[in-house]
Simulated scan of single mutants.
Amino acid sequence: MQIMVNQSDIFEVILVGFPGLPDHLYNFVSAVMLLVYIISLVANGSVIILVSLNVQLHKPMYLIIANLAASDLLFDTLTLPKLVARYWFGSSTMSFHVCVFQMFWIHHLGSLDSYLLLLMAIDRYVAVSQPLKYSTIITNQKVFVACGFSWLILAPSTKILTVIDALSIVLCSSNKINTLFCTNVSVLALACNDVAIKKQAAFTSAMIVLLLPLAFILLSYAMIISVIAKSAHVNNWKKAFYTCSLHLFLVALYYIPRIFNYIVTNIPLVVIKADVNAVLLFLYSVVPHLANPIVYFLQTKEIQQTLGNILKMLRF
Results as ranks from 00 to 15, higher is better:
Phe144Lys: 14
Ala66Asn: 04
Ala166Lys: 04
Lys82Pro: 00
Met94His: 07
His24Lys: 12
Ser168Val: 10
Ser173Lys: 11
Asp165Ile: 02
Val251Glu: 02
Asn6Val: 05
Ser71His: 02
Gln102Tyr: 05
Lys59Glu: 05
Leu109Gly: 04
Leu15Tyr: 08
Lys198His: 12
Leu298Ser: 03
Pro81Tyr: 00
Leu190Pro: 09
Ile153Cys: 09
Asp76Cys: 14
Ala222Ile: 07
Met103Glu: 04
Val287Leu: 07
Ile256Gly: 02
Phe104Asp: 01
Pro293Ile: 00
Gln102Cys: 03
Thr243Gln: 11
Val98His: 09
Ile3Asn: 08
Ala166Arg: 03
Leu250Ile: 13
Gly90His: 08
Asn178Asp: 12
Thr183Gly: 15
Asp123Gln: 11
Val286His: 11
Ile294Met: 07
Phe260Arg: 01
Val195Asp: 08
Val287Tyr: 04
Val187His: 05
Tyr262Asn: 07
Phe96Cys: 03
Ser220Cys: 15
Ile49Cys: 01
Met207Pro: 09
Phe144Ser: 10
Ile225Glu: 08
Phe18Pro: 06
Ala121Ser: 15
Leu83Asp: 00
Ala206Met: 06
Tyr296Asn: 03
Ile65Gln: 02
Ser186Asn: 10
Cys182Phe: 02
Ser91Met: 13
Val143Ser: 10
Lys301Tyr: 04
Thr300Ser: 15
Leu118Phe: 15
Leu21Thr: 08
Met223Glu: 08
Thr93Lys: 11
Asp123Ile: 09
Ile138Thr: 09
His58Asp: 07
Lys238Pro: 00
Phe144Met: 06
Pro288Glu: 05
Ala196Trp: 12
Asn175Ser: 09
Leu211Gln: 02
Val276Ile: 15
Cys172Ala: 14
Asn67Pro: 02
Val264Ile: 12
Tyr262Ala: 10
Ile228Ala: 14
Phe144Cys: 02
His108Asp: 10
Asn193Ile: 10
Thr243Phe: 00
Leu116Gln: 10
Ile197Tyr: 10
Val195Ile: 14
His233Val: 12
Ala291Lys: 00
Asp123Gly: 08
Pro81Thr: 01
Thr306Asn: 09
Thr136Ser: 13
Cys147Gln: 01
Ser114Asp: 05
Gln102Leu: 04
Tyr262Arg: 06
Ile228Asp: 10
Val270Phe: 11
Leu50Tyr: 01
Leu311Phe: 11
Asp123Trp: 01
Leu269His: 13
Ile160Val: 14
Lys59Arg: 13
Thr204Ile: 11
Asp9Leu: 08
Leu214Tyr: 07
Asn236Val: 03
Thr93Asn: 08
Arg258Phe: 14
Thr306Ser: 14
Tyr221Thr: 01
Ile106Met: 05
Ala206Phe: 12
Cys192Lys: 09
His107Met: 04
Leu218Met: 15
Val126Lys: 07
Gln299Trp: 02
Leu112Asp: 03
Val195His: 14
Ile164Met: 13
Val5Tyr: 09
Leu180Lys: 08
Ser231Gly: 14
Gly308Met: 13
Gly20Trp: 14
Thr136Phe: 06
Ile208Gln: 07
Ile137Cys: 05
Leu161Ala: 15
Ile138Phe: 02
Ala121Pro: 00
Phe282Asp: 00
Leu118Cys: 11
Ile65Glu: 02
Ala252Ser: 15
His24Val: 08
Phe241Leu: 07
Asn277Ser: 12
Gln141Tyr: 02
Leu78Gln: 02
Thr136Pro: 00
Ala240Ile: 04
Lys176Val: 05
Val145Cys: 12
Ser220Pro: 01
Ser157Gln: 01
Asn309Arg: 10
